[in-house]
């Protein structure tokens, strides 16, 4: 009897190992401007039965059941999450998707047509400059996301450009010793309240929201606060900016100065009742970058933008 039980346990153990092996999915990728290929490799049955759905910037791959997922890194334009039997692949600037299956080894190939700017190198090539950002906590808020595209041109979307710049800011400022958080790091819609709440938890020294202007100019906004607020309401989250307005005005002026100097463009400063800025308890500004119609968002210009914004923050902090 004992032998039978041991045998049964061994059979179950071995079959579960075999089963586990079959449900391992690995990924590799290749990319060039405007094009991205993701290759998912696994057992024949797994690949054959996998279903792929595509909506806006999201590609969802659904497998038969839960699996383990191996990948080393992802391209700049891609953000991947794995939950249960599904793989969620967010691709910046996604235009179209073609899917096909190949054998020996069994693999699922996802060919994505993307905007040419979406996969551009976002990591600066030059060494990180000493911005004086050591220990500065900052929250960068890339506007829009998901269905909310912001300004749209023939080869750009505001939501993708601001996300790409925000990611580069996170990387570069991180290298310079700052702690940087993003209110969204993928192409998904985040409500104004969610952005306020996530920023509140991080208690930043500096908050920068990134948007695009519908003009050739830069625009820097700081909050316009309602002066008729009753004293008992002054501690409400939505009026958090009240005690920091002076800092925000200073940051907006410094930022306008460095942007004007670097890009030789008009920079307007506007005080506007933006609810996001009004609810932040630190120096907080929105930078509207020039419309993609008038400004080339190639890798070199994006790099210049990232450096200039960080220079502005460094100058403000000093």
């Amino acid at each position: 009897m004992k032998r039978l039980v041991i045998l049964a346990v061994l059979i179950v153990f071995c079959s579960s190992m075999a089963y586990g092996d079959a449900y391992r999915v690995s990924m590799r990728w290749s990319a060039k401007p405007g094009y991205l290929r993701l290759v998912l490799e696994s057992g024949e049955e797994i690949i054959k039965t996998a279903r792929v759905y595509h909506s806006y910037s999201l590609v969802k791959v659904e497998f038969q059941s839960e699996f383990s997922f191996d990948y080393e890194n992802t391209p700049d334009a891609v953000d991947i999450s794995h939950k249960g039997s599904s793989l969620f692949i967010n691709i910046n600037g996604l235009k179209d998707v073609k899917v096909f299956r190949l054998a020996d080894p069994s693999r699922l190939v996802i060919d994505a047509e993307i905007e040419k700017t979406a996969n551009a190198k976002t990591v600066p090539e030059e060494p990180v400059k000493p911005y004086g950002l050591s220990d500065v906590v900052m929250v960068i808020d890339p506007g829009h996301g998901g269905y909310s595209m912001g300004l749209v041109g023939s080869d750009y979307k505001e939501k993708d450009i601001v996300l790409s710049i925000a990611r580069s800011l996170r990387y570069t400022a991180g290298q310079a010793g700052a702690k940087v958080f993003l209110t969204r790091s993928t192409d998904k819609y985040v409500s104004i309240d969610e952005r306020i709440n996530s920023t509140y938890k991080k208690k930043p020294d500096v908050f920068i929201s990134l948007h695009m202007s519908s003009s050739p100019d830069f625009v820097v906004y700081y909050a316009k606060m309602d002066t008729s607020i009753r004293s008992k309401d002054r501690y409400m989250l939505k009026y958090s900016q009240l005690g920091h307005l002076g800092d925000s005005v200073k940051l907006s002026r410094v930022m306008a100065e460095v942007l004007r100097e670097k890009f030789k463009r008009k920079v307007r400063i506007i005080s506007m009742p933006l609810p996001l800025l009004s609810s932040i308890g630190s120096a907080a500004i929105t930078i509207e970058l020039p419309d993609g119609k008038y400004f080339d968002y190639n890798a070199s210009n994006r790099y210049a933008l990232v450096n200039t914004i960080l220079k502005g923050i460094g100058k403000y902090e000093r």
């Binding site: 909310s148 912001g150 409500s191 002026r253 506007i270 009742p273 996001l276």
Partner: peptide, 25 residues
């Protein structure tokens, strides 16, 4: 809805927002 264009709330009445004049520096 949360917002129309991603900058202002649309889930509350407009008066408080639009009666504040914007100021150009």
């Amino acid at each position: 809805v949360d917002t129309i264009g991603g900058h202002f709330y649309a889930n509350r009445p407009l008066k408080q927002l639009v009666t504040q004049e914007i100021k150009f520096d």
